[in-house]
Amino acid sequence: MDIFSFLVQTLNAVQYGLLLFLVASGLTLVFGIMGIINLAHGSFYMAGAYLAFGLTSATGSLVWAIVLGVPLAMLVGAALEALLFVHLYKRDHLEQVLLTYGLILIFEELRSLIVGNDVHGVAMPDFLAGSIPLNDTLSYPVYRLAISAVCVVLAIGLYFLIQRTRLGMMIRAGSHDRDMVQALGINITVIYRVVFALGVAMAALAGMLAAPISSVGPNMGGQVLILSFVVVVIGGIGSVWGALLGALLIGFADTFGKVILPEFAGAMVYLVMAAVLLWRPEGLLKKGA
């Protein structure tokens, strides 16, 4: 592998990892703060991709689709929390697994009823459609760089939200001591709703961003869900920075796995997880955002 193709693969790994981080960070926050395991989180990624497809067709641009789609996803997330997930908090993990598994079946069929089972493509915005030449044969697509940039900006934003804002303080307190938070007069219902909506919106945004570079089709949520689990296991439940670390690790393992051992690429990320489990069964960074 020469230096340029190495550079291309590295950029791909980072971009893939960052996109995964968007999905996994919501998952880990919901785990860490509300203590629920949500198998349907991958469905939000899928919903985002379909939203990108629908809104891009309607408005003519992915940018508009995102501008309209993210607030919409937040609203839907808040509504889902208020109507459905609020019933999960007091239940044990087994029931949460089954209920959210049931939701996956329902979401998949609703998708099939509403938009059918065809595979779609989404056009990337014209101004991001070019690519940057690296040498005579290799070039790198601007759109992938843009995805990475958006994700980095969001990760920084998340950092400020959690570390520097009042909401973030409440989130951190909520993840450590529920009773204390209640005693301080902080409205835990609101925190849960906001965190959940945020998680849904980030997963949906990841789906929208990914739509132009992967196809939009049935069951696209399942794979992302399981990879997000791997990320969360590697990083440690409840740790956003663990999720970032885990996501990048998975990005590299998957991307370079495909180059080095194409047949075993699918299994590579799980080997990384197995290694982490042997070394640190509770994840690289334990709880504490």
């Binding site: 047949e263 699918g266 299994a267 509770e282």
Partner: peptide, 29 residues
């Protein structure tokens, strides 16, 4: 490996290893 974990971790890790087995049969000759 998986019994080193408990609770939510156990659920996720058992799921992940199954997916690995799936890929081994799905992707290889």
């Amino acid at each position: 490996l998986v019994l080193r974990t408990r609770g939510i971790y156990f659920i996720m890790v058992t799921l992940a290893f199954t997916q690995m087995a799936f890929f081994l049969f799905h992707d290889t000759a």
